[in-house]
C-alpha cells in the first residue's frame, strides 16, 4: 500500500478506535477493552506462528503467569501495578523461553503435542485450586484495583479503555517494526529455510528462544491487563480450551498480519455477545469458529484479514506502484505464510 493510503487508513482506524467507544455503554466499552486484551494474545501468535512458523496451544498459560503475578502481588502483597506488571511479563517470557527449549527441534504435530501438554500441566497442576490456595490463602481474596497512569486514575471504563488501546497500539507497532526490520526478516528466514539461515550466520537457538520469549511476554502482558480489567483473578479463564480458541481465531484472521490481532480480539469478545443479542446461546460460538476455520482454510488459506488487506491494496492502486509485476500471482502472494496452525508436517 502506498504510504499515503496507509496513513489515511491508520487515521480513520485511530479516530474510530478512540471516538466510537466514547458513545457506547459501560458494558460495551468493557467488552471492547477485553477485545483489545485478547487481541494482544492473537498478536503473540502473529509473532510466533506468523513469523517463525511455530505453533502454540498454550498462550493462555503464559497469560496466566502474567495474571497471577499481578493478582498475587497487587492484591495479596499490595504492590504497585507498575512493578507487578513488568514482573509478570518477565515471568511469562521466562516460562516461554523454557517451553521454547524443547520446542527448538520440534515443529508441526510434535510441537502441537508439546504445547498442549504445557497447557494441560498448567490446567491440572499450576492453576488447580489446591496449588494456588496453598500460597495465596484462597483466590477469592484477590481483588485487583485499577492503577493510575501519569496521575490519572483509570477508574472509569473509558479511561481504562484508552489506556489498553494505547498499550495495544504500542505492542502492535512493535510487532509491525519487527516485521519490517531485521527481526522479522531473520525469523521469516528461519521459517522458510533453517539450514540456509544458519549457514548465513543466524543463531537458530537464540532467535527461536527469543521469539518464544517475546510471544509469551506479550501473552503475559495480556494476562496482567486482564486481571486489572476483570478486577480479580480466577483459575478458570486460562485453560487449554481458551488457548485452542485463540489459535483458531488467529488462523481464521491470518497469522501473517498485525491487523489480524485487533480483528481477532474483537471477534473473540463480540462474537458470543452478538449471538446472545440475536437470541442464540453463546455456546454456539466455538462451533461457529470451527466452521469458519474450515471455510477459511478452503476460501482464503492465508486468513480473512490478510485476504481483505490484499484486496484493499489492489483497490488503492498498490498494483500500479509496483515495478512491472511478472504475473498477478506475484502481486498476490506478498503476505503468504506457508506454515499454518496445525498444518505443518
Amino acid at each position: 500500500m502506498s504510504t499515503k493510503a496507509r496513513r489515511i487508513t491508520l487515521l480513520v482506524v485511530a479516530v474510530v478506535a478512540v471516538g466510537w467507544p466514547a458513545m457506547l455503554s459501560d458494558f460495551s466499552r468493557s467488552l471492547a477493552t477485553d477485545g483489545l486484551i485478547f487481541g494482544l494474545i492473537v498478536l503473540s501468535l502473529v509473532l510466533l506462528t506468523g513469523f517463525v512458523g511455530q505453533i502454540s496451544f498454550c498462550q493462555y498459560s503464559f497469560a496466566a503467569v502474567g495474571a497471577f503475578t499481578v493478582g498475587s502481588l497487587v492484591a495479596a502483597h499490595h504492590w504497585s501495578f507498575w512493578l507487578a506488571m513488568p514482573l509478570g511479563v518477565f515471568g511469562a517470557a521466562l516460562v516461554g523461553a523454557l517451553v521454547g527449549i524443547p520446542a527448538l527441534r520440534l515443529s508441526g504435530l510434535f510441537l502441537t503435542i508439546l504445547t498442549v501438554a504445557v497447557a494441560l500441566f498448567f490446567d491440572r497442576f499450576v492453576l488447580a485450586p489446591g496449588t494456588w490456595n496453598s500460597f495465596s490463602g484462597g483466590l477469592s481474596s484477590w481483588v485487583v484495583g485499577r492503577p493510575s497512569f501519569l496521575g490519572i486514575h483509570l477508574d472509569t471504563s473509558y479511561r481504562f479503555y484508552l489506556f489498553v488501546l494505547g498499550v495495544f497500539s504500542l505492542c502492535s507497532l512493535g510487532v509491525w517494526n519487527f516485521r519490517r526490520g531485521k527481526t522479522g526478516r531473520v525469523l521469516r528466514a528461519i521459517r522458510d529455510a533453517e539450514i540456509a539461515a544458519s549457514t548465513l550466520g543466524i543463531n537458530l537457538t537464540a532467535w527461536k528462544l527469543a521469539a518464544f520469549a517475546a510471544s509469551a511476554g506479550l501473552a503475559g502482558l495480556a494476562g496482567a491487563l486482564l486481571a486489572v480489567s476483570i478486577g480479580s483473578v480466577s483459575t478458570g479463564g486460562y485453560d487449554l480450551i481458551h488457548s485452542l480458541g485463540v489459535a483458531a481465531v488467529a488462523t481464521v484472521m491470518g497469522v501473517g498480519s498485525v491487523a489480524s490481532a485487533a480483528a481477532g480480539g474483537l471477534f473473540l469478545v463480540w462474537g458470543p455477545e452478538i449471538l446472545r443479542h440475536i437470541g442464540v446461546s453463546s455456546q454456539w460460538f466455538n462451533l461457529i469458529t470451527g466452521g469458519l476455520l474450515i471455510v477459511q482454510l478452503i476460501v482464503t488459506p492465508d486468513g480473512m484479514v490478510t485476504d481483505f488487506q490484499r484486496k484493499l491494496k489492489h483497490l488503492l492502486g498498490h498494483r500500479a506502484a509496483r515495478q512491472a509485476p511478472a504475473s498477478a500471482a506475484e502481486v498476490d502472494v506478498r503476505e503468504r505464510v506457508p506454515v499454518r496452525t496445525g498444518a505443518r508436517s
Partner: peptide
Amino acid sequence: QLFSGLTALENLMVA
C-alpha cells in the same frame, strides 16, 4: 534453500 517468502531484496538484507 532460498527464503521463498521473502523478496529478493530481503533475501540479501537478511544475510
